[in-house]
Write a protein that binds this DNA or RNA. Structure first.
Length: 364
DNA sequence: AACGACGCCAACCGCTACTTT
DNA sequence: CAAAGTAGCGGTTGGCGTCGT
C-alpha cells in the first residue's frame, strides 16, 4: 500500500497556482478530461504533481463551483450535517451543491466553530457547554449523537457498497428500476419519473413489497415490538423520539442564530435533526428525484441498491412516508398518547435539506 | 508609517481505502 | 492473496490581507 510518491519528486512546483497554470489545466481537462491524475501534469505541460492538479481542479477550477459567502441555509445545513456526521466534509459537501469539502471545512473552522462556541455550544459534540440547559431531557438527544454517528458510519459503509453495486447498472437498469416503482406506485410515480421538478413519492406502507438490507431489516425488526416505529439503531438502548426530545412548538424557520444568540433556536434546529435517525433522511432522498434549476439531478432511484432499500425500508413499520401526513409515526405518541407536533417541523426540515441536496449523494 | 497580531483560505501532507497487477 | 499503484479524504500549514496599536 504505497503512498503516491509523485509529490516527493524533486523539481515539481509547489505553492500557489499561476493563471497560466490554471489555464493549462483547464484547457487540458476540458479537452481530454482528467483521466489519470498522475499522468495529467506531463500531458498538460504542468510541472506539478497529479495530486496538486486534482486539488486545484476540484477546489477551484471546476466549473460547477460556487464561491463567496455562505447563506444562512447553507450554514444551517452544515451545522445539522456536522452534528450528524462529524468531520466528514466530503459527505457534507454532497449536500451543499457547488461547495467543496475544503471550502466547507475552512468555513467550519473559521466561522461556524466560533459562532457555536460563542453561543456556548461545543462545536464537536454540539452539546451545550452548560449541561443544565439540556437537563430537561435534551441531553439525551445530544448524547445520542455520538451513538448515531457510529451508526451512521456503519450505514455509510453499506451505502457505499450499494452505490458501487449500482454503478454497474446501465440506463436500461434505470428504466427497469423506474418501471418497478411505477408498477408498485403507479399513481404516485407516473408523473414523477418524467417530471423535471422535484417530486416526493407518498408511499403507503401497505404497498411496499418486502426485500432486504440486512442491517436495516435487523434494525426494523428490533423495533417491531414497538409498532415497528421506535427508531433505534441496533445497538442502541435509547429512543430517538421521546417526549423529552421533541418540543411542542410551532413550525419554525431556522433563524440566524449568530445574530440572535438565541440558543433555543439552535437547539430546535439540532433537535429536529437529531430526533430521528438519518435512515429516515435516506428514505426521503430515495423517493425524491427530478432536477433543480441548477443541478442536473439523476435519480437515486436508478441506483439498484437504493431502490431495494426504498422498496424495503418501511417494510416492517407502520410509518407513513408522507410528509403531508405530518410524517406521523407511532413513536411520536408520548406515554400519555399525545402526538408529537414537531413531526411536521422535522419533516419539513429534512425535506428542505434533502430536496436541496444532490440526489446522488451517498450519505442519505 | 511601521509593526505585530489575527483571520482567512488555498494548498500541502500524510493517511486510508480502493483498484490493479 | 499480496504488493504496488492510485484516488480521495481530513488535518495542518503558510502566505497574504486586514486590523489594531
Amino acid at each position: 500500500m504505497g503512498r503516491s510518491p509523485c509529490c516527493d519528486k524533486v523539481g515539481l512546483k509547489k505553492g500557489p497556482w499561476t493563471p497560466e497554470e490554471d489555464q493549462k489545466l483547464l484547457a487540458y481537462i476540458e479537452e481530454n478530461g482528467h483521466g489519470s491524475w498522475r499522468a495529467l501534469p506531463s500531458k498538460a505541460g504542468l510541472e506539478r504533481c497529479g495530486k496538486s492538479c486534482r486539488l486545484r481542479w476540484t477546489n477551484y477550477l471546476r466549473p460547477d463551483i460556487k464561491r463567496g459567502k455562505f447563506s444562512l441555509q447553507e450554514e444551517q445545513t452544515i451545522i445539522q450535517l456536522h452534528a450528524l456526521l462529524g468531520n466528514r466534509w466530503s459527505s457534507i459537501a454532497t449536500h451543499l451543491p457547488k461547495r467543496t469539502d475544503n471550502e466547507i471545512k475552512n468555513y467550519w473552522n473559521t466561522h461556524l466553530k466560533k459562532k457555536l462556541t460563542k453561543l456556548g455550544i461545543d462545536p464537536v459534540t454540539h452539546k451545550s457547554k452548560n449541561e443544565s440547559i439540556f437537563s430537561d431531557g435534551h441531553s439525551k438527544s445530544a448524547a445520542n449523537l455520538s451513538h448515531m454517528a457510529q451508526w451512521e458510519s456503519a450505514r455509510l459503509e453499506a451505502e457505499a457498497r450499494l452505490v458501487k453495486e449500482s454503478k454497474i447498472h446501465t440506463k436500461h437498469s434505470l428504466q427497469h428500476q423506474l418501471g418497478i416503482i411505477n408498477s408498485v406506485f403507479p399513481s404516485q410515480s407516473s408523473s414523477s419519473a418524467s417530471s423535471s421538478s422535484n417530486q416526493v413519492l407518498h408511499i403507503k406502507p401497505d404497498t411496499i413489497p418486502s426485500g432486504s438490507l440486512d442491517a436495516m431489516k435487523a434494525w426494523l425488526k428490533s423495533n417491531e415490538g414497538n409498532n415497528g416505529s421506535d427508531l433505534e439503531s441496533p445497538t442502541s438502548s435509547l429512543s430517538f423520539c421521546e417526549k423529552g426530545i421533541v418540543k411542542d412548538e410551532g413550525e419554525k424557520e431556522w433563524k440566524g442564530y449568530e445574530n440572535s444568540t438565541n440558543l433555543e433556536e439552535y437547539k430546535d434546529g439540532m433537535e429536529n435533526s437529531m430526533a430521528f435517525p438519518s435512515t429516515m433522511h435516506h428514505e426521503l432522498t430515495m423517493i425524491t428525484w427530478g432536477s433543480s434549476d441548477d443541478n442536473a439531478h439523476v435519480s437515486v432511484a436508478d441506483e439498484a441498491g437504493f431502490t431495494n432499500l426504498l422498496l424495503n425500508s418501511s417494510n416492517s413499520g407502520d410509518r407513513s412516508l408522507s410528509p403531508e401526513s405530518g410524517g406521523e409515526c407511532n413513536t411520536c405518541y408520548g406515554s400519555g398518547g399525545e402526538f408529537c407536533e414537531d413531526n411536521k417541523n422535522y419533516w419539513n426540515d429534512i425535506l428542505n435539506l434533502v430536496n436541496s441536496s444532490p440526489s446522488d449523494s451517498s450519505v442519505f
